[in-house]
Simulated scan of single mutants.
Amino acid sequence: MVLVAGAEGLLAERAVDRLVGLARERDPGVEVTTLDGALYGSGMLGVVASPSLFDEDRVVVVEGVERATDELLTDALAYLASPAPDVVLVLRHGGGQRGKKLLDAVRAQGAPVVVCEPVKKDSDKAAFVSAELRRASRRADPRAVRALVDAVGADLRELAAACAQLVADTTGVIGSEVVERYYGGRIEATGFRVADAAIEGDAGQAVALLRHALATGVDPVPVVAALAMKLRTLAKVAATRGRGGASVRDLSLAPWQVDRALKDLQRWTPEGLAEAITAVAQADAEVKGAGRDREFAVERAVLRIASAGSR
Rank of each mutant, 00 (worst) to 15 (best):
V223W: 00
A208R: 13
G94N: 06
K101N: 03
L303C: 01
V167N: 09
L159C: 07
L45P: 12
A168S: 14
V302M: 02
L253Q: 12
P118W: 11
R138T: 07
G185C: 07
L227Q: 02
V106S: 07
T216E: 09
A274N: 08
R181D: 15
A306Y: 01
R304G: 04
K288F: 00
G272A: 08
G9P: 04
G99I: 04
A238L: 04
L209D: 03
V48G: 12
K121V: 07
G43E: 10
A15H: 11
P222A: 04
D264K: 09
V47G: 08
E158W: 05
A206M: 09
R146S: 10
G46V: 10
K236H: 04
D141Q: 07
D169R: 13
A235E: 09
G172E: 04
V178W: 05
Y182N: 07
A105T: 10
L251T: 01
G217D: 04
L19H: 04
R143A: 15
V60C: 10
H93L: 10
Q109N: 05
A206L: 07
G244F: 01
V88K: 11
L210P: 02
H212R: 14
E8H: 06
T278A: 15
V221E: 01
L209F: 14
L227G: 04
G21Y: 08
T171G: 15
A203V: 04
S130P: 01
L265E: 09
A246E: 15
D284R: 01
E188I: 08
V106Y: 02
A12C: 11
L262D: 15
D70H: 06
R24V: 00
S123Y: 12
I174T: 07
D124L: 01
S42Q: 14
L103I: 13
G99Y: 05
L303S: 00
L11F: 09
T240K: 08
F54E: 06
A213W: 00
T33I: 13
G94Y: 03
E271D: 14
R186N: 07
E66I: 01
S307Q: 12
F296A: 14
G175V: 13
Q282Y: 05
R211K: 06
D169S: 15
L89E: 12
S130D: 11
A126S: 10
L159I: 01
L156Q: 02
P255D: 14
A208M: 07
E271W: 11
A160H: 13
R294V: 01
G291Q: 10
A76D: 09
A215K: 03
K100H: 10
G272C: 09
P85G: 04
G29W: 12
L133A: 03
G289R: 02
A136E: 12
S307P: 04
Q257R: 15
Q165W: 08
V298Q: 00
V145P: 00
D27A: 15
L10E: 10
V248G: 02
V152T: 05
A283R: 02
S137D: 15
V149P: 01
K230M: 11
E295Q: 07
V87P: 05
